[in-house]
Amino acid sequence: MLDRPKHLRKIKFLNRLKNWVKLTSINVYCFSSGCCGDEILATYGPVYDLERLGVNFVSSPERADVLMIAGTITKEMKPILEDLYNNTEDKKVVIAVGSCAINGGPFYKSDYILNGVKEIFNVDLYVPGCPPRPEAIIYSILRYKERFK
């Protein structure tokens, strides 16, 4: 068996270190409205403390690893969301929370509504529920962590 070059081993170690760092500090940018926004606020509270899992709610999209999009998505919001997506990092994960953000939800017949964020850019995790319980939102973060293990 041939020996692998040394610098490759170094890269492997660096990748593992990067994954470990990403596990312990996750920067989340929330774009929320309506009743799903109230549930995300509840996860920030003391009962379901999201910060004990290493989640940081940041206020600028440039620093975010995770984009969390919740609530109704209208056609007027489309340029804002595209701008938001282009400003974030290259390797990011998009989570769509609530049935409105997944597929239009109860208002899908309306003229003003986009059928979910999946029409604008690709979504990695879907969290169904109208609105989902705060535990369901925390569970989606746990699923996100599985990727780095």
């Binding site: 109704t72 209208t74 919001m77 208002f107 309306s110 003229d111 003003y112 509504i113």
Partner: peptide
């Protein structure tokens, strides 16, 4: 920006 049009649906 948040118009859903519930009354029409």
């Amino acid at each position: 920006y948040l118009r859903t049009g519930v009354e029409k649906i």
